[in-house]
Amino acid sequence: MTGAPHDALTVVLATAAATFVWRALGALLVGRVDPDGAVVRWFTLTSYALLAALVVRLVGLPTGSLAQVPSAIRLGAVVVTLAVWWLTRRSPLPAVLAGSACIVAAAALMAES
């Protein structure tokens, strides 16, 4: 897929439109659809799979600055995030902070040596 080059503003507006469509559709079809129906379930599962793929891409195949951090450390930060999340009985904030702290600490150590 190689389209014409597009600027960031176009990307932002297209993303806003793609999200707004669903909100507006929900507002207009209130009372006329079953929010637990099969179509909605398929979309929900698809968005879960897509977000999981996004995590793999952000952590495993980074395109930007995060690529400076060795993959072993990125993987370690993933393990720490999930471990803290589990140990704190599923509280998101400590887990997210601990995972990011791993990246900060490793990057700081690397910069020193």
Binding site: M1, G3, H6, V11, W22, L25, V30, P35, L50, R57
Partner: peptide, 30 residues
């Protein structure tokens, strides 16, 4: 969208991916 834009993806592909993740707003609004 930001990730795909950085990877050089097509605008249509970006919009499709964004729409797939945002569909949850439909049942939530309903």
């Amino acid at each position: 969208a930001a990730e795909m834009h950085a990877a050089g993806a097509d605008l249509t592909a970006i919009a499709i991916a964004a729409a797939l993740t945002s569909m949850r707003f439909f049942p939530m609004a309903v």
